Amino acid sequence: MARPEDTNQQADDALAADATPAAGSTSAADAASTAHSTPPADAAPAPDATPVARDTPAADDAPHPGDATTEAATRAWQGLHTLLLDRHNRRKEVADALGMSFSRIRALRRIAPGPLTLRELAARLASDPPYTTVIVDDLVRRGLAERLTHPVDRRAKLVRLTEAGHTAATRATAILATPPDALLALPTEDIEALDRVVTKLLK
């Protein structure tokens, strides 16, 4: 099947062919027009009205004032990603230390402030309820959490941490919150400046 652009091209070619006279078929009117429009050999050439093209950059090619700022922000963001997820991946460190996946550790830290229903915990983990149930079952099996009957809705269950669960959550928080040595080695003014920037970004 011919594409629309091919059909358009064929139509254009046909129009061009119809408008082009065959070889040797120049009419008398065309010849007369050519005779009148041809300047004599000694006539002065007509001035060229076509402006000379100059290599002037287009408006879109001109540098924008915000480009340097955007590039710096991109470098900073990529650098933070590398620092947090590659060079100093505390998630792997805390998972190895506690002997469980980081999804379990996240659940521990979400439950630590107080008991939650499974639905509330799933929302805070941005997880679906069935997978949240799997996580809670594992925490209960490890002796880190327990299920309680909801005091108002007898059909619902609350999940709260055991003493061992609170100990594990506290240890996880300490590992995650410990700054790397490279950060502590920076000058005080640099650390304070970074603290101000991060505080602004978290607002």
Rank of each mutant, 00 (worst) to 15 (best):
L148M: 12
H150P: 07
R160H: 03
E163T: 08
A177I: 01
E120K: 08
K157I: 00
E120S: 14
A164T: 04
V140S: 10
K157L: 10
E163G: 13
P130C: 07
D128I: 06
L176N: 04
T170G: 15
P151T: 06
R154C: 01
R160I: 02
A156Q: 14
A126I: 03
D128A: 09
L139S: 01
R171S: 13
G165P: 10
A145H: 08
A174S: 14
G143R: 04
T132Y: 03
T170D: 15
V152G: 04
T170A: 15
T133Q: 11
S127T: 13
L158H: 11
Y131P: 00
A123D: 15
G143Q: 06
R154H: 14
A168I: 02
L118N: 12
L148D: 12
A174I: 07
L118Q: 12
V140I: 13
E163K: 02
T167S: 09
T132R: 05
A122T: 04
L158I: 07
V159T: 15
D138F: 03
A126M: 02
A156I: 01
P115T: 06
L144S: 00
I135Y: 01
V136C: 09
A156S: 13
V159F: 05
T149C: 03
A164L: 08
A156Y: 04
R155Y: 08
I175L: 15
Y131T: 05
R171I: 04
L121P: 10
L148Y: 12
T117L: 03
R155D: 14
E120I: 00
T173N: 07
L139P: 09
T170H: 13
A156H: 09
L118H: 13
T117M: 06
V134W: 05
A177Q: 12
V159S: 08
H150V: 03
A172Q: 03
P129W: 00
R124I: 01
V134Y: 13
L176P: 08
R147V: 06
G143L: 01
E146M: 12
A174Q: 15
T162G: 09
A156N: 11
